[in-house]
Computed example of a mutant assay.
Amino acid sequence: MTRDPAVELVHGVTVYFYPADAPIVGSEGQASEVLATAFGHRAALVAMPVDRLDDMFFHLSTRIAGDILQKFVNHRVQLAILGDLDSHLRTSAALRDFVAESNRGTHVWFLRDRPALEARLAARPASGSATTSG
Rank of each mutant, 00 (worst) to 15 (best):
V13G: 04
G105W: 00
W109E: 05
L121M: 07
V50L: 05
T14Y: 04
R52W: 11
A36C: 09
A130I: 01
H59N: 15
R112T: 09
V10T: 01
E8F: 04
L117N: 01
A122L: 00
T131G: 10
D21K: 01
E101Y: 14
H75P: 03
V13F: 00
P115D: 09
L89Y: 03
A6E: 10
A43E: 07
W109T: 02
A119M: 05
V77L: 00
A20G: 04
A130N: 04
T14E: 08
D55G: 05
D67Q: 14
I81A: 12
F110P: 09
I24Q: 10
L85G: 07
F39R: 14
M48T: 02
Q78M: 14
V46I: 09
Q70P: 00
S61F: 12
Y16W: 02
A93G: 15
F98H: 06
E118R: 12
N103Q: 05
S129C: 02
V25N: 00
N103K: 10
H88D: 08
F17A: 06
H88N: 08
V10K: 06
R76W: 02
D113G: 03
I68G: 05
F57L: 10
S127N: 07
V13W: 06
L45S: 07
S61V: 13
G134Y: 04
W109H: 13
S92L: 08
A100H: 11
G26A: 03
V25I: 15
M56T: 15
D55N: 14
D67S: 14
R3A: 14
A122M: 00
F72E: 07
D4V: 07
S129F: 00
D4P: 06
A100R: 14
H41P: 10
R120N: 02
L60P: 09
H75L: 08
Y16E: 06
M56G: 11
G83N: 10
A100I: 12
F58Q: 09
V108T: 13
H75G: 01
L111N: 09
R63S: 15
V108P: 04
A47P: 07
